[in-house]
């Protein structure tokens, strides 16, 4: 919808950046927020239904797709979908073998899930900006931010999941004492420098999930805003900008999913190193 004058363009951007929030509103209790102020008033107890919905939908799509191919896998000449799934699984397996040096059966499936799930969630961005929100607006759902990875909660949630795995495996492989010793003696192996070491190591540990989550969020959010800005232009010129930006984003979508997976593997393999 081409934007009229300037005010509606800001509202248009605001509308497309607003999540469908369901939460505990001080006045009208558990309800769906009708505006940004209402969503803000809900404070902590608020869920982004659209982010949750789309991420779960993509997760289920991934599971069904891969299960259907796995069940029907024939050792004969593989046809279409099986080729795709086989190439992805082999690709992830090769990457895991290259960069993961510990011995853990959880890592490869985790890497495959992270890669394909994030790829599917990111690829929702290639659907034109107004298509799904418009569809849902007809069904009375007024706010719909389709791409889950443009919501910082989703990306930080995944990053925190990886962070807990790092802590869990560090303690499991190195033992609490080993992990604590590694944190306090790593750069300088001298008892007097423990506080300095600890400071360095703790920061290094906390930056991992932070950069992991914010990298995905930053790329996807910035890309989404550009798509929305392009949608503000008169419709007959939109394709001139939308097509190159979407083509560029095919690379960005895959690359960010791949980088998230590679870093997850590398962080977990660091956690498995036993000195």
């Amino acid at each position: 919808m081409a934007a009229g004058n300037d005010t509606t363009s800001v509202e248009y951007i605001q509308h497309h950046l607003q999540n469908l929030t369901f939460g505990l509103h001080p006045q009208n209790g558990w309800s769906i927020a009708h505006g940004q102020e209402e969503a803000r008033e809900m404070g902590f107890w608020a869920l982004h239904l659209d982010t949750l919905g789309w991420s779960i939908a993509m997760g289920v799509l991934f599971l069904l797709l891969f299960r259907r191919v796995a069940v029907r896998a024939s050792s004969g000449v593989p046809h279409g979908l099986q080729n795709v799934v086989e190439s992805i699984v082999e690709f992830v397996d090769r990457t895991v073998n290259e960069s993961f040096h510990g011995k853990n059966t959880l890592i490869a499936p985790l890497a495959l899930t992270v890669f394909v799930w994030i790829f599917l969630m990111n690829s929702l961005k290639l659907i034109p900006v107004d298509f799904l929100p418009g569809l849902f607006a007809k069904m009375g759902v007024d706010y719909m931010k389709v791409v889950p990875t443009t919501d910082v909660n989703a990306t930080m949630g995944m990053a925190l999941g990886v962070f807990f795995l790092i802590i869990f495996y560090s303690i499991k492989v190195k033992g609490v004492g080993g992990f604590a010793r590694e944190l306090s003696f790593t750069p300088f192996n001298h008892w007097a420098l423990i506080p300095f070491n600890l400071l360095l190591e703790i920061i290094g540990l906390v930056v991992k999930p932070l950069s992991l989550g914010l990298r995905l969020f930053g790329n996807m959010f910035a890309g989404e805003v550009i798509f929305i800005l392009i949608a503000l232009l008169p419709f007959w010129i939109q394709w001139a900008l939308n097509v190159p930006w979407a083509i560029f984003h095919i690379l960005v979508v895959t690359l960010q999913a791949f980088v998230f997976m590679v870093l997850t593997i590398v962080y977990l393999s660091l956690a498995h190193e036993k000195h």
């Binding site: 914010l214 969020f217 930053g218 910035a222």
Partner: peptide
């Protein structure tokens, strides 16, 4: 890409 993209985000 991470750092500038976080800044842009």
């Amino acid at each position: 890409d991470a750092v500038p993209m976080i800044g842009v985000g």
